[in-house]
Design a protein around this nucleic acid. Structure first.
Length: 808
DNA sequence: GCTTTCGAGCTTTTT
DNA sequence: GCTCGAAAGC
């Protein structure tokens, strides 16, 4: 493929001035961060210090002053959501001038580049993107082929190691150079890595890490290609710089390099307009770089993020300017005091203190539950109270360390009829039936991908079992062709007539639909819209029909999910009239947890602490602040683990604007059994006078006691254990137990759909005891009772499933 | 080749 | 307490 410059543009006429409105309301440091002009700028932006505002105004300034065309700006954010927000905010300031900027994540920017350039190195533009599940499936096959479990390899250990290597820009060859060949496990790993890499390239696929790594490779191997992007992007801005890994760091380095005079000659000879950009010696100077970050918020070391990228920025980019933003515009002073106190325990950091002039605000509220459910009930009650006080559900968020913690929260929220959304976690696109439907689309888009093909070969059931699949694969191997070709030529395999017919029919459905997606060269036909493609595939394979006909009750729900996917494709087509199947697949592959956080108002948001980064809420609940959860047990062994966990806690605290709740439980369910939980060490790091303990670990621990025990008085495990044993020894359901653990919740659920309730009724609840109904709202399945309990306080109950009965 | 059953292992965080 | 894979029976 020859290099074709695709944008002809004159130099912008710099008038060097921009609207004063851009600087309005900024403090001196923020103002300087917007106005500074130089080769490289590091903005160290504490949590809530207005960095998004600074970044967007900086971009708007570049555009308004005509220092840059939109097409010369590349802004990189961490999530698509953040990218969309930044685009929107720039658009608000400069209007349509914002068109043509690249504001995207590292991954989507790289996909865009790779789709354009993949043909330089043996891929086609229709490559597929393997998500982690796809990579794992592939690795599973490879490990099995090699019997690698003999050497202690698991899918997760192998995928972790490969990912780590790729983040450090290592490939099979470079790894082999440093490998110890007398270690059989290392030899085995090398073989796994080799086969994995080979399988990806045969499948015309990249995994997540490749998207970055291969782009760097592309730039290094093809200087003229790199020169095209270096020439194009004159201003590069990177958000959340503390979370970049080595590959991403290298990508930034590659993009901001200057173009050597001889390469510039080559670009010019190929028709690239570079003359106006060349300096005295004929080189094209490197682009200007602005990075924004906060090393206190670095929480992705496990993914290869290297805090040194930000710490050593000044060394890497000589003559760079550093600007510190310390004034916080988000949180109350109490919240900031807690955050500052916690983070100051990380000793190897530059001292930095957030301050605000918002005022003290509410105290932080602490609560210790008996169990995770008890904790969840406390949260539900507090949310109800705040909602009554006029705080919208959408301004409230609940954070947790692990996704497993959602279960208890969801159960209680459903019972309390609280509207909520879980961000991340088991996502729509991870459901098996959705992955199946998606695999049909991938098989059509990228016929080289055997993973997708294998997944759907027998879905719905068409009698192509493992034996038949192996036969097809062997035929493909013997003829040195793809699995897809074997499907087309199934007639030559000598299989039974029935199964042969099925395979051929399957293959021709794919081929015929493919012809509609990629109309032959010179034909008038436009590529078929994604929704049509999907519907045709589903109909011709009787995919939904089979699910609907199934006796399994869950299959009905699966059919509905697939219909939902059809709706998603229609929506996509509406928003992107020219969107291709590849665009759709790319978008789906790169959606992040924080991305589906749309303005769907009126629901409480539940998410992990990692997902919470970059977001802010009026009220925040930090849950499960316990040893082994935060800090997580798994982090203990890793160097820097506890410090990173502390940063995670810090990130959580600093998301809150006005109200912060910190909660924990004395027991926590894991793997289906119940374990004793201890308060997190980080709790002691918050000055005691900042927290108003509704029920402190000390109170919850002492039998009847209302004396809060000082948190920093070390409790050993045995005292917790013994107190628990006493608690557990009490038969469940005794009145005494109830009053002591007013919020204790059991798992009793019943079908109450026939129960008629109205205001004034007196009821008895399994866990909360007796109370009076104050209001009934909603219809049918969603009827909700507001109940004032005698001892347990006010609760909202979803009547249908509440363990209650009327008492006369 | 399909379906059912039973046991093992599992949970850190994500683009 | 759930998911996945192996094994056995149909």
């Amino acid at each position: 493929m020859s290099f074709v410059p695709n944008i002809i543009e004159p130099e912008p006429a710099v008038d060097g001035s921009f609207d004063d409105a851009l600087l309005r309301g900024l403090n001196p440091q923020q103002r300087e961060a917007v106005e500074y002009r130089g080769q490289s700028l590091l903005i160290v932006a504490g949590a809530g210090s207005g960095k998004t505002s600074v970044l967007t105004r900086r971009i708007a300034g570049l555009l308004q002053s005509r220092e840059a065309f939109p097409s010369q700006i590349l802004a990189i954010t961490f999530t698509n959501k953040a990218a969309a927000e930044m685009r929107e905010r720039v658009h608000q300031i400069v209007g349509n001038e914002a068109e043509g900027m690249w504001i995207s994540t590292f991954h989507s920017a790289c996909v865009r580049i790779l789709r354009r350039e993949a043909e330089h190195f043996g891929f086609t533009k229709s490559f597929t993107i393997y998500d982690s599940a796809d990579s794992r499936a592939l690795l599973k096959r490879i490990l099995k082929e090699l019997d690698a479990d003999q050497y202690g390899f698991t899918v997760s250990s192998a995928s972790g190691k490969i990912s780590k290597l790729k983040n450090e820009l290592q490939d099979v060859e470079s790894y082999a150079r440093g490998a110890n060949f007398s270690d059989p496990a290392e030899v085995m790993f090398l073989e796994i890595f080799r086969r994995y890499t080979q399988a990806l390239s045969q499948a015309n696929a990249f995994d997540f890490d490749d998207l970055i790594g291969q782009t760097v490779y592309l730039f290094r191997a093809f200087p003229v290609v790199a020169a095209h992007y270096r020439r194009r992007f004159r201003h590069i801005l990177v958000d959340e710089y503390q979370d970049t890994n080595h590959a991403q760091y290298s990508l930034i380095h590659e993009l901001t390099r200057s173009v050597r005079p001889d390469i510039a000659d080559e670009v010019e000879a190929a028709g690239g307009l570079v003359k106006t950009k060349r300096d005295a010696v004929g080189a094209i100077p490197g682009a200007s770089l602005t990075v924004v970050g906060d090393s206190d918020q670095s929480i992705y070391a496990f993914r290869g993020a290297d805090i040194r990228n930000i710490v050593e920025f000044e060394r890497d980019f000589p003559n760079s300017k550093v600007i510190l933003l310390e004034q916080n515009y988000r949180s109350t002073q109490n919240i900031l005091d807690a955050a500052n106190a916690v983070i100051s325990n990380n000793f190897d950091r530059k001292d930095k203190k957030l301050f605000t002039d918002i005022g003290e605000g509410h105290k932080i509220v602490g609560f210790t539950g008996y169990s995770g459910h008890d904790e969840a009930q406390f949260i539900a009650d507090e949310i109800t109270k705040m909602h009554d006080e006029g705080i919208a559900y959408k301004d409230i968020a609940v954070f947790y360390r692990t996704n497993a913690q959602t279960r208890a929260l969801e159960e209680i929220f459903i019972r309390s009829a609280l509207p909520y959304r879980v961000l991340g976690g088991t996502k729509f696109y991870e459901r098996a039936e959705i992955k199946d439907a998606m695999a049909y689309l991938i098989a059509v888009a990228n016929p080289a991908d055997p993973l997708a093909l294998r997944r759907i070969m027998n879905v719905p059931k068409r009698g192509i079992g493992p034996a038949t699949e192996t036969a097809l694969q062997s035929w493909a191997d013997a003829h040195e062709t793809s699995l897809r070709d074997a499907v087309r030529n199934a007639g030559e395999l000598g299989l039974g007539p029935k199964v042969t017919g099925e395979i051929l029919e399957f293959g021709s459905v794919l081929d015929e639909v493919m012809a509609k997606v990629y109309p032959p060269e010179g034909s008038e036909a436009r590529p078929a819209p994604v929704a049509d493609v999907l519907v045709e595939l589903l109909e011709r394979t009787k995919f939904v029909e089979t699910l609907r006909a199934s006796r399994d009750a869950q299959d009905e729900a699966r059919a509905e999910n697939v219909e939902e996917l059809v709706a998603v494709t229609k929506e996509f087509q509406k928003n992107n009239p020219d969107g291709t199947l590849l665009d759709f697949l790319t978008e789906v592959s790169l959606v992040a947890a924080a991305d589906d956080l749309d303005d769907l108002s009126g629901t409480v948001s539940l998410m992990t602490l990692h997902t919470a980064k970059g977001l802010e809420y009026e009220a925040v609940f930090l849950t499960g602040v316990e040893e082994d959860l935060l800090p997580h047990r798994m982090s203990a062994g890793e160097p820097g683990g506890p410090a990173e966990e502390r940063r995670l806690f810090y990130v959580g605290i600093t998301r809150a604007r006005k109200r912060l709740f910190i909660s924990l439980a004395m027991t926590r369910a894991a793997y289906g059994n119940v374990n004793v939980a201890m308060p997190s060490r980080y709790l002691q790091e918050i000055p005691a006078d900042l927290i108003d303990w509704r029920q402190s670990p000390g109170m919850a621990n002492s039998r009847n006691g209302t004396e809060p025990r000082a948190l920093n008085a070390r409790r050993d495990g045995s005292s917790w254990g013994s107190s628990l044993r006493e608690a557990a020894a009490l038969p469940p359901g005794k009145p005494k137990e109830k009053t002591q653990w007013a919020n204790m919740v059991t798992n009793v659920v019943r079908d109450n759909s026939t129960l008629e309730l109205s205001a004034g009724d007196r009821i008895k609840h399994n866990d909360f005891g007796e109370g009076r109904v104050t209001a009934v709202t909603g219809e049918g399945k969603k009827r909700v009772a507001e109940v004032q309990f005698d001892t347990a306080g006010r609760k909202r109950l979803l009547i249908q499933i509440a363990p209650i009965e009327k008492v006369e």
